[in-house]
């Protein structure tokens, strides 16, 4: 961990007409830190994530990102070309539905290789070797490299999506319900994998989830949202073990005990 954060978000708000998407969100994210954003559906988690990843423009507020050269850049003042370049090099976005983040009609290898080709790699052998390496890191057999993701199971698709995002060595990954729609054993393996990759690569990540167990496993810090506002934030263990805001207490006590 360095002294300087990676991302600084200040008073970020997004309104859909008179309705609130998210309001007055302020936080810093440090390199290598995993921040979980939890809350019930409609609480503004995804709006916040989309604003941060510049897929949506906020109504007010600022977000600054420390680029690889150490320069601070205001995200919403960058040109679209710069934002898109950032999106496919230094950032990753893992969608809840893998079909949104993958090209379903090209092979797994090409899905992983696309970002490399987008940043100018023009050597087939090298691209393929990198794709093979990344597939093995996300536990996909090498002989599935030429199969289309359509032929993959949900868990495999999600792992492929993760490989596709991490291949350029991003520093910040946004994840929107990465384990949504997967059964529990597949979820468990995916979480193991994510935890290992995040630690190995020193990734910073913002994970949106409504699953408190996922948040506990993955994240060091946590923000609880309700009606577009952050009602509580702090270390994940502290928030889950000693919730202070009434809503957080409700949320934590709503976990089913098996």
């Amino acid at each position: 961990m360095t002294d300087e954060p990676l991302l600084r978000v200040s008073a970020l708000s997004k309104f859909y007409g008179s309705r609130v998407g998210c309001e007055n969100v302020t936080f810093d994210l440090w390199p290598g830190e995993v921040l979980a954003v939890v809350g019930e559906s409609g609480s503004g988690k995804t709006t916040l994530l989309n604003c941060l990843s510049t897929r949506l423009l906020p109504s007010s507020g600022t977000a600054s990102y420390r680029m690889r050269d150490g320069q601070w850049r205001e995200l919403y003042r960058m040109s679209e070309a710069e934002r898109r370049f950032l999106m496919r090099t230094d950032w990753g976005f893992v969608h809840q539905n893998p079909a949104d983040g993958l090209r379903m009609t090209v092979s797994a290898g090409a899905n992983v290789g696309e970002r490399l080709m987008a940043v100018g790699d023009r050597h087939y052998g090298r691209i393929r070797a990198t794709a093979v390496d990344w597939l093995s890191r996300v536990e996909i057999d090498e002989d599935r490299i030429d199969d289309e993701p359509r032929a993959f199971s949900g868990g495999m698709r999600q792992r492929l999506q993760i490989a596709r995002n991490l291949v350029t060595g991003p520093r910040l990954v946004f994840m929107d319900e990465p384990t949504g729609g997967l059964d529990v054993s597949v979820q468990a393996r995916l979480l193991d994998l994510l935890r290992r990759l995040v630690t190995d690569l020193g990734l910073a990540a913002i994970v949106v989830t409504h699953d408190l167990a996922v948040a506990r496993l993955l994240s060091q810090r946590m923000m609880v949202m309700k009606d577009g506002r952050v009602v509580e934030s702090g270390l994940t263990d502290r928030v889950l073990d000693d919730p202070r805001a009434p809503y957080t207490q409700l949320l934590v006590s709503s976990i089913l005990q098996v």
Partner: peptide, 16 residues
């Protein structure tokens, strides 16, 4: 924006 990585994805698919 001169984002032409995708064009090479097609050629990659051919070789694969």
């Amino acid at each position: 924006l001169e984002e032409y990585g995708l064009m090479h994805v097609k050629l990659y698919e051919d070789i694969a």
